[in-house]
């Protein structure tokens, strides 16, 4: 926790210095005067009262429920108010396997949320399809249709991992300045339709580009296949 508070993004520190000298601020604070910037105040409120959508898809949702319960207590981070309506939610935690049949509904829920809105992709399935990656019925990652802010690895991620993801999201929100976007573009995204062999389109090119993150080595550098033993 402590390392997170110290390790703030350079944008925040820069603005902090611009607002008022740190020594002066601390002196003023001793006198009962608290000086801050409008951005910081707004982001402080915004990042500490994220209302997630009460929405789960698979076993990751069980971990999400555990995170919300008393042992891990997501209320410590101001996110305990799980709303059952997307109109009242800031954050959609895509918790679990997104089947191709469910994907249009997830995109529709995202579209119905009020801005600013954030997406956490929780677990291997929501991120990439996970163990069902080669199957016929599971979407290979919700980032094909909606922009994701934070990915949480794990199968399923522990409550601690979800809280870490939430803190990363808070960091992101805190680095936002008024009128400035951080992270992927929000808004409404087209809802995929059911096709003859899967969803159509297979991904939304506005949010997802299937690129190889590596370059294929030339054929001469590839290891030679081992000749089969007689």
């Amino acid at each position: 926790m402590a390392s997170h508070i110290q390790h703030q993004s350079p944008i925040i520190q820069h603005r902090f210095e611009m607002a008022v000298d740190q020594g002066l601020q601390s002196e003023l604070q001793k006198q009962g005067v608290f000086v801050t910037s409008w951005d910081q105040l707004l982001n402080w409120g915004r990042s500490n009262s994220i209302w997630p959508l009460q929405f789960g898809l698979a076993c990751c949702a069980i971990e999400m429920i555990a995170t919300a319960a008393s042992r891990y207590d997501i209320a410590r981070f101001g996110s305990e108010i799980f709303r059952a309506s997307p109109r009242q939610a800031d954050l959609i935690i895509v918790a679990g396997t997104v089947t191709k049949k469910m994907a249009p509904q997830v995109v529709r829920l995202y579209n119905q949320m009020a801005e600013p809105k954030y997406v956490i992709s929780m677990g291997a399935c929501a991120t990439s399809g996970g163990p069902f990656h080669t199957g016929y019925n599971v979407l290979k990652g919700i980032d094909r249709y909606i922009p994701v802010d934070v990915y949480i690895p794990g199968c399923p991620p522990t409550p601690q991992a979800l809280l870490e993801g939430l803190m990363r999201l808070q960091e992101r929100i805190k680095s936002r300045s008024m009128g400035q976007e951080v992270g992927p573009k929000q808004g409404e995204y087209p809802i995929p339709e059911f096709g003859a062999s899967g969803l159509a389109p297979r991904y939304n090119p506005d949010v997802f580009q299937p690129k190889k993150p590596w370059a294929d080595p030339p054929a001469s550098q590839l290891p030679k296949p081992i000749a089969p033993q007689p």
Partner: peptide, 25 residues
């Protein structure tokens, strides 16, 4: 009952070819 109307083929047959076999595709 599980797949939608308009889906072609029967995916649990062993000769069914999944549309996006490519790892990133």
């Amino acid at each position: 009952i599980l797949m939608w109307e308009g889906f072609e083929g029967h995916p649990m047959r062993k000769d069914y070819v999944v549309e996006d076999q490519d790892v990133l595709g």
